[in-house]
Amino acid sequence: MTTTTPIEEDGVKRRDFLYIAAGGVGAVGTAFAIWPFVAQMNPSADVLALSSTEVELDAIEEGSEITAVWQGKPVFIRHRTKAEIAAAEEVDISTLPDPEADADRVENPEWLIMVGVCTHLGCVPLKESGDFNGWFCPCHGSHYDTSGRIRKGPAPANLVVPPYEFLSATTVKIG
């Protein structure tokens, strides 16, 4: 907008303030109006409510594992052998890309429970394979050990341990 008419100093100030105030209020209003359109893409109330899964453990024998589903993702539940536990515990954690003690990753050493999603780009790793006899992700070659920690390959972090609790000796609630 161009105005060539001379206006006294005071008038200019008042006008500018008015324009800025109106523009500011308009901008704030627009920002608030946009929020619902963004928020609607977040998980809805019913999705959030389905945040836990209960799994029975008594059928899982030592040295085997099952894959449960929690929040649409695979969760590996492994009944580890003595050898696997020992292998996981004796590693010098300072040599690890993502240092974490095995004891911090399990509540009960016999049971290793973790989200079966490779921390690289989201593929599902294969059990009992790879250079460390843990898990191996076939997509881009990440090797995990018997505690699910990243040892070799492009993945940046250990397999994630979900929140869980043992409701009894044979029942675990994930989430």
Binding site: L18, A21, A22, V25, G26, G29
Partner: peptide, 8 residues
């Protein structure tokens, strides 16, 4: 907002 827009 209406008030401000009206003034402008």
């Amino acid at each position: 907002m209406s008030g401000l827009f009206y003034a402008v």
